[in-house]
Nucleic acid binder design. Structure first.
Lengths: 204, 204
DNA sequence: TACGGTATAGTCCATATGGACTAATCGGAA
DNA sequence: TTCCGATTAGTCCATATGGACTATACCGTA
């Protein structure tokens, strides 16, 4: 039922999400993403990006809305996101938000989680917290066992780090869920629409 | 000078590192890595793994040492790591340990850092700490600015998480560097050789 | 006016990845 | 004995990725 969204890559999701703000041509999306440092979230290279756009179009998740030409520069095709594309983003976030493998996917899902209603996000993040707690215990037990068995510390540093980071993530997650559930701040695209880009427009 | 090691993938490094323990055939490496949960560190799929071995062999980093046959099952080629392969691991860890982009690569580098002498690791991790501190400040400043500009909290959650995790990593890293520098525990493969696998051997 | 550098807007290709598929053998139950 | 499923040991291919390359237009300077 929620199957067709399975093939989306993180960059694909970010592309669709960007187009929800307004219609754009590919190079403009590239510039925007880089200006907003979204390339810290996901590696964005030219080749991958243009391929992604082509794939999304073939999948019917975005569509051309016009071709304009500025001066004598190459034509630029402007794209818009389709209804299927909007649904795909929502479904993808729904699927990735509770998962604890795929750290990269989670970051993107979290960044786009405002596309879902507050209660859904609280539920999905609680599910994630449960999984994370289990994973944390697994690591701590594993380390305990290794220490007991006399595995030297130099072979455990990586696992110790992982356990420490899992702990930190749990702390952060608990705080977020609590604030979300208590409605400590507004949520949802209707509540506070993404403010329109104030930077100088690209063409003009 | 340290150039030829540049093309190594994380899985390639782990493969070479495994072969430093003893000669093995590919399927045995696969089993061992999975038994040791190295697939939590790096995704390990069949296709990728066998391709990786082939690539390493073509690059001269590992070499066949014999083909045996057990019963009537398919032949298994046993591999060993070459001197070039050993150097490549050391160079790769040297290059990746101080870097703060490439989180996956860092985890592998950390897991294999015992291949380097203690002082080198202290230096490289200190370099990493400096970079990490800068990144952390960047995030905190960015968040400060966003808050000042009135960017709604729902659009900042991902960045807040990143900042929190950076903080946790700094804390962990400081502790590790201090203990390493103070020689709080043994270090280096000569100090405490990796204990020989106690599990039941595969063939026999 | 010639000229070099940067911004625009991509294309192209070698390589890496994931996962479905193959094929033989072994062990145990009916 | 025969059949079923798991284990062993990979192969193969479609797709994704990174990064080098192209080509034009604009802008400031000498």
């Amino acid at each position: 039922m929620k199957d067709p969204a399975c093939k989306l890559t993180p960059l694909g999701v970010m592309t669709l999400a960007l187009l929800r703000e307004r219609d754009m041509h590919p190079y403009e999306m590239l510039r925007l993403m880089r200006q907003r440092h979204h390339d810290k979230l996901v590696p964005i290279t030219n080749g991958t990006f243009y391929h992604t756009v082509a794939r999304l179009q073939k999948a019917g998740l975005l569509a051309e809305v016009g071709i304009d030409r500025d001066g004598n520069r190459p034509e630029r095709t402007t794209y818009t996101v389709t209804d299927a594309g909007t649904d795909a983003v929502v479904d993808w976030v729904h699927a990735e938000l509770p998962r604890i493998d795929h750290p990269l996917e989670f970051r993107v899902a979290l960044a786009e989680s405002h596309n879902l209603p507050r209660e859904a996000v609280v539920d999905l993040l609680s599910e994630r917290r449960a999984a994370l707690t289990g994973e944390h215990r697994l690591y701590r037990d594993g380390l305990e066992g290794a220490r007991a068995k006399g595995v030297p510390e130099q072979y455990r540093v990586q696992t110790e780090r992982q356990a420490a980071l899992l702990g930190a993530e749990l702390t952060w997650l608990d705080a977020l869920i609590e604030r979300l559930a208590a409605s400590a701040f507004p949520w949802g695209p209707d509540a506070e629409p993404h403010h329109v880009t104030t930077e100088r427009r690209l063409s003009e």
